[in-house]
């Protein structure tokens, strides 16, 4: 009996201490983590729009859209997050589109768990640069093992068609939605 009480006391005290320690670290870390995420988004925005000087955030439904402007206040385009399932896990991207909503300004893969050496190549400049100036209508498509012929095509990564296709699918879905949202 004495032992049971001791067990309960020890476990309760331990639980309380552990909970308290975690609340403390959570309080310390969460603003820093939020800041890191914001920095990451900002960095990606200015990478896609190198002439961008500032941006306004607009919330549509649950999504954020960033209106990016240059130093004279001229609208350069819109940036927005896009995510979906890749080959091994979620792919998170930031997408930039020009004000006409027909041409991509670029994409930046923020987070992905694709196979290292194959699918993970979607995070390389070589792959991302293909999206600069890409036409989004009627929709983006991909070709395998050959140079793209049309202005709406990209070349899939050899050995990682699934990952390349996932990126294209996520983009098409998200762009269709953003067009609707922005025209409202």
């Amino acid at each position: 009996m004495k032992n049971t009480i001791k067990m309960i006391i020890v476990l309760t005290v331990l639980g309380l201490l552990s909970g308290a320690a975690l609340v403390f670290i959570y309080r310390y870390a969460s603003p820093l983590i939020a800041q890191n995420q914001k920095d990451e988004t900002e960095k990606a925005i200015y990478k896609i729009f190198p002439e961008g000087k500032n941006y306004d955030t607009r919330i549509i439904g649950e999504d954020s859209v960033y209106k990016v402007k240059d130093k004279n206040g001229k609208l350069l385009g819109y940036a927005f997050p896009a995510s979906g399932n890749g080959y091994q896990g979620q792919i998170d991207m930031l997408v930039g589109i020009q004000p006409d909503l027909a041409t991509l300004a670029g994409i930046e893969v923020l987070d992905s768990q694709e196979t290292p050496g194959l699918g993970q190549e979607i995070t390389t400049e070589k792959f991302e640069n293909q999206f600069k100036g890409l036409k989004v209508s009627p929709s983006i498509s991909y070709v395998k093992n050959q140079k793209p012929q049309n202005p709406n095509e990209i070349e899939a990564i050899t050995g990682a068609t699934v990952s390349s296709k996932a990126v294209v699918t996520i983009l098409n879905e998200r762009i269709a939605k953003i067009k609707k949202d922005l025209n409202k």
Partner: peptide, 19 residues
């Protein structure tokens, strides 16, 4: 429980400082 607590601390620390 002790280990899980320290792991959570390490995880948040990494997320906050070495994103």
């Amino acid at each position: 429980v002790i280990i899980a607590t320290f792991v959570t601390c390490a995880d948040y620390f990494l997320k906050a400082n070495f994103y």
